[in-house]
Nucleic acid binder design. Structure first.
Lengths: 141, 141
DNA sequence: TCTTGACCTCAAGTTAACTTGAGCCTGTAT
DNA sequence: ATACAGGCTCAAGTTAACTTGAGGTCAAGA
């Protein structure tokens, strides 16, 4: 039975976002005091899960599908595995990026394009977009 | 001296995107044959660099600033280091996510929230948003 | 009782990075 | 010479995930 302001304080999310999430079916208020929404304390867990899902690259729509309003979560295990693999690919690419940036930050070559290390990095990152697991649409570069 | 269709073939980017990039000052055509744009072959390197920058989490605007139209690239080394560190944080978080998802995919607990491993993962990912290095605006969850 | 500040709703606006559409132009093949 | 595939411009549309604003409500304190 907590107030929306309590939720904003504990979650860091603005009230507008909470209302938006409710509208989208991601969360639910447990009742009202007058006009004002009242939330169950478990809303905070749910918000964590939503955040978790977002971080994993799921869209709000996908998250809404995974966390049915009336029940516990029912996440498709296969979907989780797939997502994990996608994230792993992203990790590999980000590692290349990170190392590449660190190199570029101290590389003395006049133009980065002339540096073989930099060229290698470009090659690696060229293959696929890092944010691939978030994209619905193709992007081949 | 290649045609826009050649560029689309080699880069995988649609012509509309190339025109958009040109409009934004990210790339330049070297001339025209009639109305049609002609590009230098080095455009492909430049597009790779743009892709690289995007993957690193830079916005097109930032990228445009880093790759001045008339010269070689002049990337701020400090900016690169900062970005590398941000990416590293992202990597750490994604690793937690990946492992968490893999666990959830085979965890027998009835509800994920009841699984201590899952709870730990939620905790980790709670601290900061993964896409932090791409965000201009705060998001504390 | 009255005031008031926090909430409410609903519609519209925002941002990034493109895409789509309408209507026009032209190099190249016939 | 003529047709036309394919490029061109410019404006408007798209999507996700929110935010902002106008105008209204109401529970609690003085």
């Amino acid at each position: 039975m907590i107030d929306i302001t309590e939720v904003t304080k504990h979650s860091g999310l603005p009230a507008s976002t909470l209302r938006y999430y409710e509208e989208k079916g991601l969360i639910q208020s447990i009742g009202r005091r007058g006009l004002r929404r009242l939330f169950d304390r478990t809303i905070l867990d749910r918000l964590s899960l939503i955040s978790l899902g977002q971080n994993a690259g799921f869209s709000l729509e996908e998250i809404a599908a995974m966390y049915p309003p009336c029940g516990k979560l029912k996440i498709d295990k296969a979907q989780l595995s797939t997502k994990a693999d996608e994230i792993d690919q992203t990790i590999q690419r980000l590692i290349a990026m990170r190392d590449g940036l660190r190199h570029a930050a101290k590389c003395p070559a006049p133009s980065h394009m002339e540096c073989p290390t930099f060229q290698r990095i470009v090659k690696i990152t060229q293959k696929r977009n890092i944010r691939g697991h978030k994209q619905k649409k193709k992007q081949s570069f």
